[in-house]
Design a protein around this nucleic acid. Structure first.
Length: 289
DNA sequence: TTCGCATGGCTTAAACTAAC
DNA sequence: GTTAGTTTAAGCCATGCGAA
């Protein structure tokens, strides 16, 4: 019944909202630094040259070229550069949230990764260079590009870091939410209510619904509807069950299912199946030829 | 004519949000 | 966490359409 940890983190990440507030390439002055500073914004630093010392909570790190730092908001930081070899770095400030949550309070990521290998270094540098370039531009589309580069940088970081769940109060609550999500998947055909789910996890219905939405980006009933429709699509594609039986298999009344399906896909369940099969046989004909 | 399916209107119970 | 007001989802019924 337990949802795979990796799957759950992926689900959380799909609800990640993030945006860059500033991005630059800078050689800092010898006096640069912050002492016992707790920022309310996340930062990425990619060190190209120079040296420095970064302290995050109780962790002291020597900053050197080829290192990529993720400095999360809400963590006490003391940063300094080592004159005369002051830091030359790409950097950006960004916001990130999953509902009301700070994603770096849920995921445990190292504060630093070593960008080893020429191709990785080139990729990191190219991403930052693009980020700086597009951040300066005024076109509407540039804002989307900036966002996409930030996601790319986070992807780059995560691919090279070991990501685990952090055991915080927030994660204890989402342990419950993830179990609830798994329970819903297993009981699609049953009548499920928020009240019943909340009772299973010893929470009040409203509090449960709030927390569920924070963790998964959708209310319990929206989430249930989503997984029911996904299952229905699977059954329409893979089986010859009647639309009535498909509706029953995902715990819905036929007329409601039919209406909901059409508002979601713009096709009725029957039309959807016909189109899917038509497309499938057309592809097969093309392959045979 | 029957069956399977789709859709619209109305009602009500359940869920959500904001304020505390 | 709780409460109160608001919004939305879901159920019910009637009806229409196309295929067999």
């Amino acid at each position: 019944m337990d949802l795979n940890r990796n799957d759950f983190l992926k689900q959380l990440l799909s609800n990640l909202q993030a945006d860059v507030t500033i991005a630059q390439l800078t050689k800092v002055s010898p006096s640069w630094g912050h002492a016992n500073y707790t920022p309310d914004i996340h930062r990425l630093y990619y060190i190209l040259d120079g040296e420095g010392v970064f302290q995050l909570d109780d962790t002291v790190l020597e900053a050197k070229p080829g290192q990529l730092y993720l400095l999360p908001a809400g963590v006490k930081q003391t940063l300094s550069t080592s004159a005369p070899r002051t830091l030359y770095k790409y950097w950006c400030h960004f916001t990130a949230s999953i509902g009301d949550l700070n994603p770096f309070q849920v995921m445990k990521l190292p504060y630093r990764i070593e960008v080893s290998g020429a191709s990785s270094a080139a990729e990191a540098e190219a991403l930052f260079a693009e980020l700086v370039r597009f951040k300066r531009r005024n076109e509407l589309a540039a804002a989307l590009k900036v966002k996409s580069i930030l996601f790319d940088l986070l992807r780059f970081y995560m691919e090279r870091a070991e990501v685990t769940e952090k055991q915080t109060n927030a994660s204890l609550t989402y342990e419950k939410m993830k179990t609830a999500a798994a329970y819903m998947k297993e009981h699609l055909a049953s009548e499920l209510s928020v009240e019943e789910l909340a009772r299973l996890f010893h929470l009040s219905p409203n509090y449960f619904a709030q927390q569920f939405k924070t963790m998964l980006g959708a209310s319990p009933m929206q989430y249930l509807k989503r997984i029911r429709l996904a299952k229905a699509v699977e059954l329409l594609r893979a089986t010859d069950l009647s639309v009535t039986d498909v509706a029953a298999a995902v715990g819905m009344e036929l007329h409601y299912f039919s209406r909901l399906f059409k508002s979601w896909q713009n096709f009725s369940p029957k039309e959807y199946r016909q189109l899917y099969r038509k497309r499938g046989s057309a592809k097969k004909d093309a392959d045979d030829r």
